[in-house]
Design a binder for these strands. Structure first.
Length: 571
RNA sequence: UGCUUCGUGGUGUAAUUGGCAACACGUCUGACUCUGGAUCAGAAGAGUCCAGGUUCGAGCCCUGGCGAAGCAACCA
């Protein structure tokens, strides 16, 4: 296409001001004065499930491009199939869009708002000899449709009179006929190379209550017969959708052309869907995970749903930034989750306070520290942001540190605690390990003994002495107990859904969730509330779970910190 | 053996009228550090699916191949 080279420069280094290929098209349309230079988009979810990060990509484009050109974006529920749709989903979808940071300014519509006008348009097509009632079943119609490589054959009902078609279609809607017994078809071209133009079904009989129109209708329009027309009714100028609708576009145009009266005409443009490594995105597959209880629900923190990501601790800013960074093209890409993880680390790094939490505790006893002494160490909340201030953390003779931070026989590159080694306790003293005790039955290290150097207190006279490592800690006497859920990628294959002859569930990561029931966290965390976010110093970013309660605190790991030691240790 | 669309470092995106293929993530060094985080400095990594052609010059234009995806719901 020629628009690629025509307009605004796309500066990869500055995605904030650059225009993707769709926005370039919009810009050209505006400059050419099409549709009076208006820009009006829409986000058209079907209310049959929860929004996922793929929808976020569409939302950012629909609302984002409208905003860029001073236009509007409608929210339109594509509710033409009463079998699959429910009010419950309408509410969750609206919540998720708002959470992401977008607003439709009251322009909430439903395809079902237009059922009367759509029906009238169908009658109009019949009158014009452009639609007919077909009495055949779905199998016969499918057989006559041909295949992508073979043309179809015309239905025996194709030449019905206008009067008969009017009569039949009206009676279809009055409930006289059974579901599946008749459909209304557009009369286009059974030998078209485009399957969608071979007399597509535009209305079917469905004797179901619709979540908004109740039992008013017995016929419901198909997607193809609703979408473009709804765009037209709403004054939408640019109807953005994913690549698989490319072949629908001629039908979209055919219908709009027969509906429109003036120069105004909506235009469909397609972009690539979001794919993420180690993730499945299709609604069907996500639903399967939920139904089979392979995850705890639609908002399981491992799910790519917006509710799942939210519960996991992702911020709307991080998701928007991620989406901005991957761009919109016509290439079916598979994006590295590492980029998503980078986006959330980058965001949280600046925003979130650091705290001490020991996930796998082992007791550390400072043998030369008085048993009855208590100090309060002043600890900076976020070295990236002075305005976040500091807090006091109790320090005493018995502490907990991470099991992983001690090795009986440490290798050279291990910069932490081992016999005779020195480390700094972050915000406290430099300590030296003098011994340890093992649990006789398990053989695991049960207690570690050390001495501290009183001169080395943070900010003190000998505080500048360098040691190799710095450990986080909590005071045993003052620590709170917490449950910490360590989430990892749900799948251990980069493309679980794309393996021929293999079911995606074969690639589930058995270690995608590890629950640590007795973690020790610093006492300042006593009153945390769901959605509170922290960096557990040296460990990762964590978010308070929605079911967390005072006295029964639950954290979800959003993402671990980058860990060069972890990589080294694996080698 | 149809129609539509797409092929640029490992991944994704960019490259103005045809002008030294750039940016981000990831990877690897090093510096700094009271987080093995962050930050900073640097490196490796593609010659743009292939073959021709036009041109002083092609990722971009032309021709021909090859490969991949979507399309045969009364789903959206």
């Amino acid at each position: 296409m020629d628009y690629k080279n025509k307009s605004a420069r796309n500066d990869a280094g500055d995605p904030g001001t650059s225009l993707n290929f769709i926005e370039q098209i919009i810009q050209e349309d505006v400059r050419a004065g099409k549709n009076d230079g208006r820009v009006h988009t829409r986000f058209p979810p079907e209310p049959n499930g929860y929004l996922h990060i793929g929808h976020a990509k569409a939302i950012c484009l629909d609302f984002g491009s409208a905003e860029k050109f001073g236009g509007k974006c409608n929210l339109r529920f594509d509710d033409t199939n009463p079998i699959k749709e429910e009010t419950e989903y309408v509410e969750s979808i609206k919540e998720d869009i708002h959470w992401l940071g977008f607003d439709w300014e009251g322009r909430e519509f439903h395809a079902s708002d237009y059922f009367d006008r759509l029906y009238d348009f169908a009658l109009d097509l019949i009158r014009r000899g452009l639609a007919y009632v077909d009495d055949q079943g779905s199998e016969e119609i499918a057989a006559q449709k041909g295949t992508p490589t073979k043309p179809g054959t015309e239905s025996p009902y194709r030449k019905r009179s206008v009067e008969e078609n009017m009569d039949l279609f009206t009676r279809m809607n009055s409930g006289e006929f059974d579901e599946g017994s008749r459909v209304l078809r557009a009369k286009i071209d059974m030998s078209s190379p485009n399957m969608h133009m071979r007399d597509p079904v535009i209305y079917r009989i469905l004797k179901r209550a619709h979540h908004r129109t109740g039992n008013k209708w017995h016929v419901y329009p198909m997607y193809d017969f609703a979408h473009g027309q709804c765009d037209y009714f709403e004054g939408v100028t640019h109807s953005l959708c994913t690549l698989e609708f490319e072949v629908h576009r001629p039908l979209y145009d055919w219908l709009v052309d027969r509906l429109k009266t003036g120069d105004y005409r909506p235009r469909q443009i397609e972009f690539n869907r979001l794919n993420l490594t180690y993730t499945v995105m299709s609604k069907r597959k996500l639903q399967e995970l939920v139904m089979l209880k392979l995850v705890s629900g639609w908002d399981d923190p491992r799910m790519p749903t917006l509710s799942g990501l939210r519960r996991r601790g992702y911020t709307p800013e991080s998701i928007r930034r991620f989406i901005k960074s991957i761009g919109y093209t016509k290439f079916e890409a598979i994006n590295d989750v590492a980029l998503l993880e980078h986006a959330i680390r980058d965001d949280l790094n600046l925003k979130v306070p650091r705290v001490f939490a020991v996930l796998n505790p082992v007791k550390l006893i400072i043998t030369n520290y008085p048993d009855d002494r208590l100090e309060e160490m002043e600890i900076i909340n976020n070295p990236e942001d002075e305005s976040m201030g500091s807090r006091r953390v109790p320090f005493s003779r018995e502490l907990y540190i991470e099991k992983d931070d001690f090795m009986e026989d440490p290798p050279k590159k291990f910069f932490r605690l081992g016999p005779e080694r020195e480390v700094r306790l972050k915000g406290g003293y430099i300590i030296k390990c003098t011994g340890f005790k093992k649990d006789e039955s398990t053989g695991e290290v049960a207690e570690i003994y050390c001495t501290y150097d009183p001169e080395t207190k943070s900010g003190g006279s000998a505080a500048n002495r360098k040691v190799k490592g710095t450990l986080h800690w909590v005071s045993a006497k003052h620590a709170l107990n917490a449950e910490v859920r360590l989430y990892d990628r749900l799948f251990d294959h980069p493309d679980p859904a794309g393996q021929k002859n293999r079911d995606f569930k074969e690639f589930l990561n058995p270690d995608s969730l590890k629950i640590l029931a007795s973690c020790k966290i610093e006492p300042s965390l006593a009153d945390v509330k769901p959605q509170d976010k922290f960096q557990f110093q040296r460990v990762g970013y964590f978010c308070v779970d929605k079911n967390s309660k005072q006295g029964n605190i639950v954290f979800n790991r959003t993402v671990p910190l980058r860990d060069t030691w972890g990589k080294l240790a694996k080698k």
